[in-house]
Write a protein that binds this DNA or RNA. Structure first.
Lengths: 233, 233
DNA sequence: TCAGCCAGGATTGTTGAACAATCCGAGGTA
DNA sequence: TACCTCGGATTGTTCAACAATCCTGGCTGA
């Protein structure tokens, strides 16, 4: 999803990319690394994130760390109270329910608009293909989502929302996406979701204003059921 | 220039206000002042916000100003590009359309849940009463929303969303609320919206799953029409 | 005239150190 | 046990400085 490798700012080396200005700020880089770590489960939910530790680990100043933490707070990955250490967010069952409730609204609205406005679907088709290209992780001994599978799954859903062409709808989904990653962090793998995605795409392609939302709704409810089974509280 | 008084208690205490610990951070205080200024039109849309100027004006360090600006950026009140001064956001017509499109979805979903879940309406009734208590600003020579009128109007809509009882739905609306204020900044006054509010509340109170969304939808479309007439681009 | 270039000031991005404010946990006391 | 205190740990904020980038005005050369 965000495979932008760290430019690794050695003092003096500046590649000055020829393309669009892709120079992420130091805070963005720290936030990205921390985020991918959280998605991999390394700083587990509940772990306190101390500013001096992070500053030392990532080789930046405490100010930069604070800025990165703020980013993760607004993304819902980190919780923070005044004068207390930030912590990797722990989602309760109520959180998961609420999260999926809003996610459902956003994605269904997106499908509604796509069908109604006859929006182009090229990115959506690509996302489905990418999802199907992900290896099932060899011996499916561990019934878990792998990180690439999660990426591909959420990319499909993000592609649905993006296809609606509304910046704010997309932004809303992006704010939920981080929390969704958290909710799916250590979860059983739903082996059938690739078929789900293809069916949803087909219904969208045929502009079926009834079937497309229904399939997506069912798919989302399945995800909610799975996540709820593994959430605390 | 050192002994800075710490005037506690500024509205808008962001972090999970779970109790009496009501000390807004310096950045929150600066953001609140800047925000209310923007809502009053003082730093007009498009005005560059320079960090050193703001630091001097509000008597805080540049870091604190930067943090406050970040808050306003995520609230949609300020736009910012790397190495360029932040600016008070200027909403295009496309922005206004998109904004109202999402706002509509959020508020209609809220009404749907209120009606379905039979949610309590005390806060909603209070908001309607508060809206009706606002003076029409004497001689209606200037057909503009006054700031108190805007506050009361948005408070009503916020109360609708809050009554649905979903933290993330409320958060989504709050992210749109700032932009809505911007969209209504210099706008013609819709003299009839008090009647609208009362009718909407009545329909909600009677759990009318058809009339309540319809009235709210019409009300929102009216707002969109008004805002579009005054937006640039 | 005018497009392009160039220098230098203005502004943002980042760091480091320092101090203040607050929290947290380990003891001590009743 | 329950409560208190106290000192270390952690966050909040400031100041000062430098690096990276932008912006503006003047200059050059056709």
């Amino acid at each position: 999803m965000n495979p932008r490798p760290r430019p690794d700012r050695a003092p003096g080396s500046r590649p000055s990319a020829s393309g669009p200005g892709l120079q992420a700020s130091a805070a963005d880089r720290v936030a990205a690394q921390l985020r991918s770590g959280i998605f991999a489960g390394d700083p587990a939910p509940g772990t306190p994130l101390r500013e001096v530790d992070l500053a030392a680990r990532y080789g930046v100043s405490r100010h930069t760390v604070r800025e990165a933490l703020r980013e993760l707070v607004v993304a819902g990955l980190v919780s923070q109270d005044p004068f207390r250490s930030a912590r990797v967010r722990v989602l309760t069952r109520a959180d998961v329910r609420d999260l999926f409730g809003l996610r459902r609204v956003v994605e269904l609205e997106a499908v509604r608009r796509i069908v109604e406005d006859d929006a182009p679907l090229t990115a959506l088709e690509a996302a489905v293909a990418a999802r199907e290209a992900v290896e099932p992780d060899g011996p499916d001994d561990a019934l878990r989502y792998t990180v690439p599978e999660l990426d591909a799954d959420l990319d499909f859903h993000r592609a649905v929302v993006l296809a609606a062409g509304s910046p704010r709808l997309a932004r809303t989904f992006d704010m939920l996406a981080g929390e969704l990653r958290l909710a799916f962090l250590a979860l059983v793998h739903d082996a059938d979701d690739r078929g789900h995605h293809r069916a949803i795409l087909t219904a969208i392609r045929e502009r079926d204003a009834t079937l497309a939302p229904d399939l997506l709704d069912t798919h989302i409810r399945d995800g909610l059921r799975i996540c709820l089974a593994a959430a605390p509280d």
